[in-house]
């Protein structure tokens, strides 16, 4: 079972690599749209990047609009990973 620390580490690594964020920008309270400047197309790209990173499907059956901050994103992936392991 993947730990929360691993989720944070892998998520941040993927965002740094694909979206050119600096490590110091990726704090849990950072808002994806307002602080990190991700637009609607970036959000779709981010989903694909995270699916590849974690090997899970994030697009179906989940309301991604509730994800506002990075913290929300970590929680969301943790929840999916838990469901995936059941």
């Amino acid at each position: 079972m993947i730990t929360r620390e691993e989720i944070i580490k892998h998520t941040n690594e993927a965002l740094e690599k694909e979206f050119e964020f600096r490590a110091e920008q990726l704090v849990p309270s950072a808002r994806l749209r307002d602080d990190l400047g991700l637009d609607s197309l970036d959000a779709l790209d981010m989903v694909v990047v995270l699916e590849q990173q974690f090997g899970v499907t994030l697009r179906q059956g989940y309301d991604l609009r509730t994800i506002i901050t990075l913290e929300d994103l970590y929680n969301f992936i943790e929840k999916i990973a838990r469901e995936h392991n059941k």
Binding site: F19, L41, D42, D45
Partner: peptide
């Protein structure tokens, strides 16, 4: 880059999509 503020800012992918 969407803005003039950061000349090194990343290129958003909209144009390429």
């Amino acid at each position: 880059q969407g803005s003039r503020k950061d000349p090194q800012a990343r290129f958003k992918s909209g144009a390429f999509y």
